[in-house]
């Protein structure tokens, strides 16, 4: 299947990436090339095959749901682009 400019804009919106008209046109060509090439998987018969989800065939480990690290507020906030005391800040969401 082939993506039209509206589909490219919809995907960019879902991915939270701003795109301009020139980029939409370029991405449309590139993404359709990639998806066209991926379509070769249609040749493969996967009837009755269980999907492989992980990189390892071993089961996931469970652990106790407990706090394992001390208070790291300062370390965690040390890379914030903008902060106010112990809070991250973002542009106003509610008018």
């Amino acid at each position: 299947m082939s993506l039209d400019p509206a589909a490219i804009r919809r995907i960019a919106r879902l991915a939270r990436i701003r795109v301009d008209d020139a980029q939409v046109q370029q991405m449309q060509g590139e993404l359709n090339t990639i998806l066209g090439w991926i379509d070769q998987l249609n040749e493969v018969d996967v009837t009755g095959i269980e999907p492989l989800t992980g990189g390892a065939t071993m089961a996931m480990r469970l652990r106790e749901d407990a706090v394992t690290v001390p208070d790291l507020t300062e370390a965690v906030l040390s890379n914030a682009p903008d902060r106010d005391g112990p809070f991250y800040t973002v542009p106003k969401v509610v008018e």
Binding site: V90, P91, V93
Partner: peptide, 20 residues
């Protein structure tokens, strides 16, 4: 928001989209 570079935007969604 949490780390890395930020580009400004008029609202939260525009800030995300410009940053990325």
């Amino acid at each position: 928001v949490r780390y890395g570079a930020r580009s400004p935007g008029r609202d939260l969604i525009e800030m995300y989209e410009n940053t990325r």
